[in-house]
Amino acid sequence: MRKVDLCLSSEGAEVILATSSDEKHPPENMIDGNPETFWTTTGMFPQEFIICFHKQVRIERLVIQSYFVRTLRIEKSTSKEPVDFEQWIERDLVHTEGQLQSEEIMGRDGHATYLRFIIISAFDHFASVHSISAEGIALSNLS
């Protein structure tokens, strides 16, 4: 089976919820494959977004490029609908002044249909997420 970046919109992934939205920096920017475009939070924390794969996938490696994110929790669901999320990973990120934070996660049991990212806290009033990429395998379509 072919390994792909499961979080690309060109591979069928979609951001189905985001708690912040600036028209100029929409959530789709996180999955367009271009780290120059980004999604911004627009004030107060926590903030979250949900990515739908529209299929069953197995994630092996997840990379999040962001700025000012402090505590990040990732939950996943294997349901057809965005329900029954279970906590998967929680990380405290390090601030890297003037450089994107690049957090690599090798998750165990990466079976998912949805991922929910919760930015619990940040190093500043606002945070940005530039790209989410998930290396892995598409297992089956949702019937």
């Binding site: 600036d22 100029k24 920096h25 780290p35 120059e36 980004f38 911004t40 627009t42 004030g43 700025y67 000012f68 003037g98 450089q99 994107l100 500043d124 009033h125 606002f126 940005s128 530039h130």
Partner: peptide, 17 residues
């Protein structure tokens, strides 16, 4: 003031890559 701060941070995010 808060809006100005947001604009400034967005510029910072833009300059990162």
């Amino acid at each position: 003031q808060f809006h100005r701060l947001y604009r400034e941070k967005v510029e910072v995010f833009q300059a990162l890559v």
